[in-house]
Amino acid sequence: MTTSLVQRVKSKLSIFAHRKARGMLDGEYGSVFKGRSLDFEDLRAYVPGDEVRDIDWKATARHGSPLIRRYVAVRRQTLLLVTDTGRNMAATSADGEDKKDIAVMALGILGYLALRHRDVVGLVAGDSAGSRSLPAKGGEAHLERLLREVHSRAGLSVPPSDLRVQLEHVARNYRQRMLLFVVADELLPDPGMEKLLRRLRAQHEILWLTIRDADLGAPGEQYDVADSLVLLSHLAGSEEVRRAYGLASAERTAGRVGMFRRLGIAEVTAGSSHEVVPAIFSLLERHRHGR
């Protein structure tokens, strides 16, 4: 029997985030939507990082230790998962995992957080040939379907990646304010992409996770999935080639980071599934503080 992708996500959360940390992760997610209408739900123990204004001082005095008021949304919000399932996502990441596996883990964790907050989750995914969208709904079975869609479509036999196609699809078809969680390959910034993201940023909350590329490894056959070319072993092992690759990669990273900073979009990177939970916590925290 095939292992549930949602179950993998829950297992990863239980391994990398103990109960207090999961409470903080929930709290960071709950702070994303500005102007969210909230109702009081219950109290929980204070953990470092909680807002002092959320402390219930009367309950704290009775209990003998700080207690935090927890709230739930009166109305559901929408989380739209946006990701690339083109050929680039069949490549390996900085830690050697398939990029699509890291993408599924990241999408699954934020999707699961949304379900815990009674929000609904939808998906836009695709490649340079087009996008496929699945409507926003609640429930773990629906989240499983979304994750299966991403996992099954990314591969070497599909068209090349072009995230611009997916972002333009969102800009054309989604008018309701929502949270966009974009998981993508290392983006090549340009004025057209920046203009498109500025348009989306004016309409939606945006969180972005970049999956880092693998470095040029030890001598051996290197395969570029984007254009299906093999990099000869003597080139992959060349110190001059490696140096040029490193400089180009650093310039690309600086350009991407600068673009997101100008747009006010919080971005983090992950090179393995082990980095996803702390990366998402950092992403939510940075978004809350406007960094």
Rank of each mutant, 00 (worst) to 15 (best):
E275W: 08
M24T: 10
H287N: 12
D190H: 10
V150D: 01
D127R: 05
G111R: 05
T2N: 15
V230D: 09
L81N: 07
L79S: 00
A91S: 11
G237E: 02
A129F: 04
F16C: 10
D42H: 12
L163K: 05
G126K: 02
H142N: 09
W57F: 14
D215L: 14
Y223E: 01
R148A: 10
R44P: 03
G27T: 10
F281G: 11
L13K: 02
A21W: 01
L235D: 07
K58T: 05
V241F: 13
F181H: 11
E221C: 02
L235E: 09
R22C: 06
H204R: 08
L146D: 03
V158W: 07
R118T: 11
W208S: 14
V124G: 03
I265Q: 05
R288T: 00
E221R: 15
L180K: 00
L284I: 07
P278L: 01
I102H: 01
G290N: 04
H117N: 05
R199S: 14
S249F: 12
D56Y: 07
F40W: 09
G23N: 11
A236M: 07
E285F: 10
L283N: 02
T85E: 06
S4F: 01
E251Q: 14
K58L: 09
E267G: 03
D119K: 07
R132D: 12
A125V: 10
E251W: 10
L179H: 03
L200K: 02
M105T: 12
L229Q: 15
V170R: 03
R22T: 06
L216H: 02
K34V: 13
S161N: 05
I55H: 00
V47K: 10
D215M: 10
R148C: 11
E186N: 04
I15V: 13
R69S: 12
S161G: 03
H63R: 13
W208V: 09
V124Y: 12
A214W: 03
D185S: 01
V158Y: 06
L229S: 15
R199Y: 09
I280L: 15
V225P: 11
Y245E: 11
L284P: 03
L134I: 07
V47Q: 12
Q222T: 15
V277N: 02
Q166K: 06
K10C: 09
I211W: 00
V257K: 06
S272H: 07
K100A: 07
A59M: 08
L147H: 04
A129E: 11
D84F: 04
H234D: 14
L5E: 04
R19G: 08
L180D: 05
E51L: 13
D50K: 01
A202S: 14
A154P: 00
R148F: 12
G271N: 09
L25S: 00
T3H: 13
D227M: 05
Q166N: 10
F281Y: 14
L147Q: 04
R132M: 14
E275R: 08
L179I: 11
Q77V: 08
M193T: 10
L143H: 09
A154W: 00
N88T: 05
G138N: 04
T210V: 14
P219F: 02
L67A: 05
K137M: 13
S272T: 07
V183E: 06
